[in-house]
């Protein structure tokens, strides 16, 4: 594990952790390109609706606002979890992480409702280029959230079992980066897919 530095938060205390956090930031650069490419495709295909419905016809503001506020709040609570971790409180860390994951699950619930709604109004994924790219973009984000839920559960088990060590702290910090990043992506989905589509 190499040197242990006690002057920095636990998650940075080993060389290995500091490598992992840096590596994860690099990965987020790749994620920017991934979602950006989906946006580029979305903007290209948004008006190509074929015989299917248009954006304005199928978007509903209520579930979108619910999703947005749920995800914003979860981003806040995972931030609090990291803060609690730095204060060394295992219990508070786990509590905030639990709230975050519950909010994540709630977000997914609303998104599933939304997808069912799209299917009902004749906007399935095979209907037109627009519905294909819309559902793929939302679905990619949703899959990231789903993956995050499992990741978070595994992480909570480890923190509960092993306590806040340099290993678990490093993992938790990386997880928080991931979760905040999903919120950033959602902001762009909210602004440039939904609001722009309903404007």
């Amino acid at each position: 594990m190499g040197k242990v530095n006690n002057n920095v938060p636990l998650e940075y205390s080993t060389e290995e952790n500091s490598l992992k956090i840096f590596g994860f930031w690099t990965f987020l650069g790749a994620e920017i390109m991934l979602f950006g490419t989906l946006f580029a495709s979305y903007f290209t295909l948004v008006d190509r609706t074929g015989n299917g419905p248009t954006a304005a016809e199928i978007f509903e503001i209520t579930p979108v606002l619910a999703e947005t506020f749920i995800l914003l709040t979860s981003s806040f609570t995972i931030g609090l979890a990291i803060h609690a971790m730095r204060l060394g409180s295992k219990k508070a860390t786990l509590t905030f992480m639990g709230i975050t994951l519950l909010l994540g699950a709630a977000f997914l619930g609303v998104e599933i409702y939304e997808f069912v709604h799209y299917a009902h109004v004749g906007a399935g994924i095979t209907v037109s280029a627009f519905t294909s790219i819309l559902l793929t973009t939302l679905g990619t984000h949703g899959l990231h959230v789903t993956f995050g839920l499992f990741w978070g559960i595994f992480l909570m088990i480890q923190i509960a079992k092993r306590g806040l060590t340099s290993v678990t702290a490093g993992k938790a910090f990386v997880f928080s980066l991931y979760w905040h990043f999903l919120d950033v992506v959602w902001i762009f989905i909210f602004s440039f897919i939904y609001l722009k589509g309903m404007m």
Binding site: S41, L45, G50, T126, S128, A129, S132, T136
Partner: peptide, 21 residues
């Protein structure tokens, strides 16, 4: 991924009709 979905799941990203490009 988009190409795979077009071929396996009949999405319309690069299709000739239905708005594909």
């Amino acid at each position: 991924a988009m190409g795979t979905m077009d071929r396996l799941f009949d999405t319309k990203f690069f299709a000739i009709g239905d708005g594909g490009m």
